[in-house]
Design a protein around this nucleic acid. Structure first.
Length: 479
RNA sequence: GCCGCCAUCGUCUAACGGUUAGGACGCCAGAUUCUCAAUCUGGUAAUCGGGGUUCGAUUCCCCGUGGCGGUACCA
């Protein structure tokens, strides 16, 4: 069997987002699940749309996600160069070959002429005006400096079949296939020529790409036939959609990939989410490691229809992967993406404790920014909130006094549960206390907030001294 | 206009002719409970429409409808 080689072939016209990512990942999974190669090729044949820095941004995203290319502009490889603008003479050579074989012809029609033709015609295809031009004559005109493009001479009245792994046999009537431009007058190839030539030369076994290419893949099959090359396996991929049913894009609210890092998402969560929309192993398993995906991946289970991007589900995945991380790891990732807490110079052990008690409340790591200012500054209490709604002032004062008294003598402070035990002992030690009579006022005294982690957790984070101080303050306020 | 693709809960999806149409997210309710989370339990909700084929269609075929994509010297 031929070695599996798949590629991701973006044009550097902007940043990568989560929609493109899915196509990348399917190609990557396909290659790596078969011990194959994954190649990055830059398709920069449109000089007018080039966006400075987009390749670097993409690579930054891939590095974060752990997507590794075996060959590419950065990695090199035996099929270098991997940037199409550096391969112009190659395309020229193959375009010439097609001319000589009678599969292509020079076209001297100006763009204005073509536009006019299109407005007039009921069919929007090229008239084929230059088809019949004498080849030698045309070559002479070109050598004399006349502007020309090279078009594919699409054979009329035939059927072309694209055998696609996802979509099955897709048939095209060549009468509806335009004489596609292969070489532009600026000497650059169009996508159609470049992709076929490079996929062949780079020995790509599986052409994975967004299904917006499905309609033009008939042209590509024709090109393979013209060159006499073996067809690769076509794998057209359904897109990720925005809420309005249109393809996700920068304009449709899609974030650059690297933004997910800044927002505090974990790479595994992003990968797991996006791969599992559009593909599944048929076993109802939703949470899968990369290794499991590699193990189970099968292109034949790729979904045909597009899927709508849904942050809620991504968030759910993120929470799951977050829960697998230690407080240590959470902290270092948090500090890595930049933190509001940096300036506070608190020691790491303290921050880790905060993370430990807050972690069930966050969706992304960045949410830690929003958590409890009561860890860092003294709370301002409202007197009427100190008393639990089912309790009385007298009982509350009684409880707070007992807690304050007991706090110095309680020995176990290793984990939040130890302090739960402490508070519970106060409750149990006194007949007329319910949990709320003790827990609520302590929690409020420590946090000054309507909502917060449990009093025992707060005590654990704040420590004996600060906890005692705040409780004392509450007592004074209430008395 | 023409060409192509697609169509199961709100969303992501399973069911390769026979299931009470399954799972997940979300949502709702209950349990837990000192608040908010977390957790656990339960619930809600779908085969686009019409014809065929078949003993039997979510599943196969045809016709509609809808959505998306292509129709560039853009990819």
């Amino acid at each position: 069997m031929k070695k599996v080689r798949a590629r991701f072939a973006p044009s550097p016209t902007g940043n990568l987002h989560i929609g493109n990512l899915r196509s990348v990942l399917y190609g990557y999974l396909l290659a790596k699940s078969k011990q194959g190669d994954f190649i990055l090729r830059i398709e920069d044949t449109d000089q007018t749309r080039y966006v400075e820095g987009s390749i670097d941004m993409m690579l930054e995203g891939f590095d974060w996600l752990g997507v590794r290319f075996d060959e590419g502009p950065r990695e090199g490889g035996e099929f270098s160069p991997y940037i199409q603008s550096e391969r112009l003479e190659i395309y020229k050579k193959y375009a010439d070959e097609l001319i000589n074989k009678g599969w292509a012809y020079y076209c001297f029609c100006s763009q204005d002429e073509l536009k006019e033709e299109r407005i007039k015609g009921d069919q929007l295809m090229y008239s084929g005006k230059c088809r019949a031009l004498d080849v030698e004559e045309s070559k002479k005109r070109v050598t004399n400096g006349e502007k020309a493009v090279i078009r594919l001479k699409v054979p009329k009245g035939r059927e072309v079949v694209v055998n696609d792994v996802v979509y099955g046999d897709v048939k095209f009537d060549t009468n509806f296939i335009d004489d596609q431009v292969l070489m532009k007058s600026d000497g650059f190839p169009t996508y159609h020529l470049a992709v076929v030539v490079d996929d062949h030369l780079m020995e790509i076994s599986h052409v994975t790409r967004s299904n917006e290419w499905l309609p033009s893949s008939g042209k590509h099959v024709l090109l393979y036939e013209a060159f006499g090359w073996e067809l690769p396996t076509f794998v057209h991929l359904s897109p990720v959609l925005a809420d309005d049913g249109k393809k996700l894009s920068k304009r449709k609210g899609a974030l650059p990939l690297i933004e997910y890092k800044k927002l505090g998402y974990l790479p595994q969560a992003v990968i797991n989410y996006i791969v599992l929309t559009g593909w599944n192993a048929g076993d109802n398993v939703e949470v899968m490691s990369w290794e499991e995906m590699l193990d189970k991946f099968d292109v034949s289970r790729l979904q045909k229809k597009g899927s709508t991007y849904n942050v809620e589900k991504l968030n759910w995945y993120n929470k799951i992967y977050l829960s697998n991380l230690s407080a240590d790891e959470l902290l270092s990732r948090y500090l890595e993406i930049g933190s509001n807490w940096n300036v506070l110079n608190l020691d790491k052990e303290h921050l880790k404790k905060i993370i430990e008690v807050e972690r069930s409340r966050i969706i992304t790591i960045k949410d830690l920014d929003e958590m409890g200012k009561y860890y860092f500054e003294e709370p301002e209490l409202e007197v009427e909130k100190i008393v639990f709604k089912k309790s009385t002032k007298e009982i509350t004062l009684d409880a707070l006094h007992l807690v304050l008294k007991g706090i110095d003598n309680w020995e176990k402070w290793d984990k939040p549960e130890d302090l739960f035990e402490f508070l519970k002992s106060i409750v149990n030690g006194n007949d007329h206390f319910s949990n709320g009579d003790v827990f609520w006022p302590v929690r409020y005294a420590l946090s000054g907030a309507d909502q917060s982690p449990s009093p025992n957790e707060l005590m654990w984070v704040l420590g004996r001294e600060k906890s005692g101080m705040r409780i004392k303050q509450a007592i004074e306020l209430l008395s």
